[in-house]
Structures are given as structure tokens and as C-alpha cells.
Design a protein around this nucleic acid. Structure first.
Length: 292
DNA sequence: TCCTCCCTGTTC
DNA sequence: GAACAGGGAGGA
């Protein structure tokens, strides 16, 4: 469920909770969750310090500074049900906790006045919970990104994408508009929710062939993609059932859905019944009257 | 380029 | 007790 706005919100809410804190130990409770970097654990734990929490596509990235100052990154893909939470030092993992990172207090230069704790004492725990175990974590050195196919193939970020680049990418390929929006190698970070919402706003049928669209209409579509993503970020994302940010709070953008999850209900613009179909293997809702 | 599968909790 | 949710890998 977490798409670009949700992962962006998690990065923003997680950053103040983890930045400047050292990872004292990392526990893997579900072996498949850690896809890469297990061999680096003894190299950097304990002692690696979290220097930033950020997002690329739907990936949540925690930048680390190793014991010798060298950079590493923890990359999390939350897929549908992944969550990241910082708990107290005595929190115990539960049924769906896949990884646990023991954290120190924040370093002095990042906090106003950190509480005094014994050196090396666990002051909190970062949990990676994931009911469906589709999510994963990788611990990467800078050079490891270059040999990670998924990372290398990621397309541009939609929020900073130039209209002409978007037009060129879509017109050069076959397939339905929505299928291309969901293709992370063409544009990164859009999932089922925002693809449907952007197509509705643009008055474009999700199953329309991308290559047959007028460039002007694709430029309009990109504008709506940016709008819907930015509006959702302002609302702290959309919470369908599982998603929460790193503070445990739900987003509010689901209250503004015009089509997603509304098949069979009335179109908010024309009042006609919203249709449901399948595009690129995903449930797709659109208005047959407003979208052409 | 399209289809199936992975996985488990929730809904019908 | 089956259908459904869905990102992305891998196969057809």
C-alpha cells in the first residue's frame, strides 16, 4: 500500500526519531526479509550512526555512517504491509516483526540536550513489521547500488519530472497508460491508488493506449500526477487499512479518493456509476463518461 | 508485453 | 472457505 506519498511521509516522520542515533545491534527475525548485506552486519554493528532518512521511488532509505566514517545505506521496500516504528528500549517483537534495530540515544550534536544514558545502552528499538512478508531490507555500500538491478532500472521521480521527458517515455512504448504509470522503470513511485486518481483527474481512461495520446494530454496527466502526489503528501498519505507513518498516525488522503475503491458508486463529477476493470493485473476504477 | 505467483489477514 | 488486496520477479 505505501506508495510515494506514504513512503515520503514515513521518511519525514522517522527522520527526527532516528537521525544521530547509533545502531547497537540488528536482529533478523525473518531470514527472507534481509535480502542483502548480512555479511556487513558484523562490520558496522554496533556503532553505525543513522545520518538521514529519505526516500527514492517507494524505497525508504536510512543512511549510515560506519565506525570508520564510511557510508552505508539501509534500504527498505515496505510493499503492502511494511511498517517502521521506533519503540522504547524494552519493546518486544511480535508475530509480524521481521527485523529489530537496537538504538542508542541521539548523538550530542543532533539533539538539543540528549538524556544521559550509559555508554552503549539501548535507548530505543526500531521495528520493521510486515504482515505479508513481501517487504525487504538491504544493507548496501555505495558500490552495491550499482549492481542492484532494481535500483539501476528505476525511472525518474515524478515530482521533478519534466513534461517532455514524460511524454517521450510514454509515446515510445506500447501498453495502456496506467500500465506504464505502474512501471517503475518509466516513472518511479506511483502505485495503484495514485495511478487511478491521476487518470481520473486527467479525464483519461486508464486502459487507453499510451502511444495514441496527444502530447498535450500527457502533459496534463503529468500535472495531475504531481498534484495528487503533493496533495497526498500534505495529508500524510492514504491509509486504507495497514499504512501508518512512523508516529503511528494514519494519513487522510483516502477521504479525497475520487475513484480508488469506489467502483459501483457515483462519479463525483457526473453522477454516473464508476466502472471497474483490470489493467496490468490490478483492479482499476474509472468513470466511463468523464474519462476518454 | 502480459500473466502468474509470492504471502496472510480480512471480507464476502 | 474462496476471493481479494498488490509490487515486482520471472516465465511464457
Amino acid at each position: 500500500m505505501p506508495e510515494l506519498p506514504e513512503v515520503e511521509t514515513i521518511a519525514r516522520t522517522l527522520a527526527p526519531q532516528v537521525t544521530g542515533r547509533a545502531i547497537l545491534a540488528a536482529h533478523v527475525l525473518h531470514a527472507k526479509t534481509l535480502e542483502a548485506g548480512k555479511d556487513l552486519f558484523p562490520v558496522i554493528f554496533p556503532g553505525a550512526v543513522i545520518t538521514a532518512a529519505r526516500r527514492r521511488a517507494k524505497l525508504l532509505l536510512l543512511d549510515l555512517r560506519g565506525r570508520g566514517g564510511e557510508p552505508y545505506t539501509l534500504a527498505f521496500h515496505l510493499k503492502m504491509t511494511g511498517r517502521l516504528f521506533v519503540h522504547g528500549a524494552d519493546a518486544q517483537p511480535h508475530k509480524h516483526t521481521r527485523m529489530v534495530f537496537d538504538l542508542s540515544e541521539a548523538e550530542a550534536e543532533t539533539g538539543a540536550k540528549p538524556k544521559v544514558a550509559p555508554a552503549g545502552a539501548v535507548a530505543g528499538r526500531l521495528f520493521f513489521d510486515d504482515v505479508r512478508t513481501f517487504g525487504y531490507c538491504r544493507l548496501l555500500r555505495p558500490q552495491d547500488f550499482a549492481v542492484w538491478p532494481f535500483w539501476n532500472k528505476l525511472g525518474p521521480e515524478p515530482l521533478t519530472l519534466a513534461p517532455q521527458d514524460f511524454i517521450d517515455a510514454l509515446l515510445g512504448r506500447r501498453g495502456a497508460v496506467k500500465a506504464l504509470l505502474l512501471d517503475q522503470t518509466i516513472i518511479a513511485g506511483i502505485g495503484n491508488i495514485y495511478a487511478d486518481e491521476a487518470c481520473f483527474r486527467a479525464g483519461l481512461r486508464p486502459d487507453a493506449p499510451a502511444s495514441k495520446q496527444k502530447p498535450e494530454k500527457l502533459a496534463v496527466l503529468l500535472g495531475h500526477i504531481k498534484d495528487v502526489l503533493n496533495e497526498s503528501i500534505e495529508e500524510c498519505g492514504s491509509s486504507i487499512r495497514d499504512y501508518r507513518d512512523a508516529n503511528g498516525d494514519a494519513g487522510a488522503f483516502q477521504n479525497r479518493f475520487k475513484v480508488y475503491g469506489r467502483a459501483g458508486q457515483a462519479c463525483t463529477v457526473c453522477g454516473k456509476t464508476l466502472a471497474k476493470t483490470v489493467v496490468a493485473g490490478r483492479t482499476t476504477v474509472y468513470c466511463g463518461h468523464c474519462q476518454k
